[in-house]
């Protein structure tokens, strides 16, 4: 059965591969030109969250698992990356890798607990575990409590390139983002990714075909947490701060919102969603306290009327896969 569906899917596969390649090239071109028109700090912030949202989307979009606690990996990775760069004197590349490793380890622990239950329980477990680690972050000494870790040095990349300038930093963030994005594309389009989609569509059937679905789910979970860790680590280096905001459940909610707005289960959706939400937060600053309410309204509108999201809607209109 698996073989048959592979051969049937093959011609369509190359077509959808083409639209993805074109979209990827456009995105890369836009990211290269963007700093000439847009403030690089905003772009870097949006890219960090775009990567975070892509990592989250790997779970919800391709395995059908709603993790409501992804701030755990993002926030703790940014704490450890900041600590590594500031206290241990790690260069930025190693600090970001420390963040990725933090995400991987936490993802392995939380993931192996959470995949023991399905559906709605999965979301509640991930949320509860993230809340537990929020309290640890609040009480632990090295996180600096309410102040967070401030004054994190950006340092020199490989000991050579000084990252103090925003333009150099932006180049590094773009490289990290594109590399991780390509990795996600590769995962999704690999045989492993096909099994993930099979689990999303019909888990009992995947089990009956002989796949150890729990193991696939756990690997996907760890991958997602690791990439969220890369995003968190990068953010700590760029903004030179790690704080409680990034481990709070509101951050978990925000990444869900970004993915939902952009389009669940689309490759480019989370990127679009992250840019929309970050732009909204930056440009609607005057509305301060109303931002939460607006976010809530967007949630409600998206769920009721706009479930495909921006990119999903475009893909549907053009009848291509994005």
């Amino acid at each position: 059965m698996a073989v048959a569906s592979d051969t049937i899917a093959a011609p369509e596969h190359s077509a959808e591969g083409r639209s993805e390649t074109i979209a990827f090239l456009i995105m890369t071109a836009v990211l290269i030109v963007a700093p000439f028109f847009i403030y690089p700090l905003f772009l870097m912030q949006a890219l960090c969250f775009a990567l975070f949202a892509c990592a989250f989307n790997l779970l919800i979009g391709y395995v059908g698992l709603l993790s409501f606690g992804h701030a755990l990996y993002f926030g703790w990775a940014s704490y450890l990356a900041a600590h590594a760069a500031k206290v241990w004197g790690f260069p930025p590349e190693l600090a970001i890798l420390t963040g990725a490793a933090t995400g991987a380890v936490l993802g392995l622990v939380a993931g192996s607990l959470a995949i023991r239950r399905q559906g709605i329980y999965f979301a509640m477990i991930t949320l509860a575990l993230a809340q537990m680690m929020f309290f640890f972050a609040l009480q632990a000494k090295f996180t600096g409590g309410e102040d967070g870790i401030q004054g994190v040095p950006r340092g020199k990349l490989f000991g050579l390139i000084d990252l103090a300038s925003n333009n150099t930093m932006y180049a590094l963030v773009v490289v990290i983002f594109l590399a991780c994005f390509l990795l996600i594309l590769r995962i999704i389009n690999s045989p492993f990714g096909e099994v993930l989609k099979a689990i999303r569509e019909n888990e009992p059937r995947a089990i009956s075909l002989g796949y150890k679905t729990d193991r696939y789910k756990l690997v996907a979970f760890v991958l997602s947490a690791t990439l969220a860790g890369v995003a968190g680590g990068t953010k700590a280096i760029v903004f030179q701060i790690a704080s409680l905001t990034d481990v709070h459940w509101t951050m978990s909610g925000e990444v869900v919102l970004m993915t939902l707005v952009g389009g669940l289960g689309t490759v480019f959706g989370p990127v679009a969603g992250a840019f929309v939400i970050i732009a909204m937060q930056n440009y609607l600053n005057a509305l301060e306290s109303w931002v939460t309410v607006i976010q809530g309204v967007i949630f409600v509108v998206c769920v009721l009327l706009f479930r495909r999201g921006i990119v999903g809607e475009i893909a549907h209109l053009l009848r291509i896969k994005l």
Binding site: I120, V256, L260, T292, Q295, G296, F299, V303
Partner: peptide, 11 residues
């Protein structure tokens, strides 16, 4: 879950 989360944010 997502809809009721949004409503909670609004309220």
């Amino acid at each position: 879950l997502l809809l009721t989360f949004g409503l909670a944010l609004i309220i």
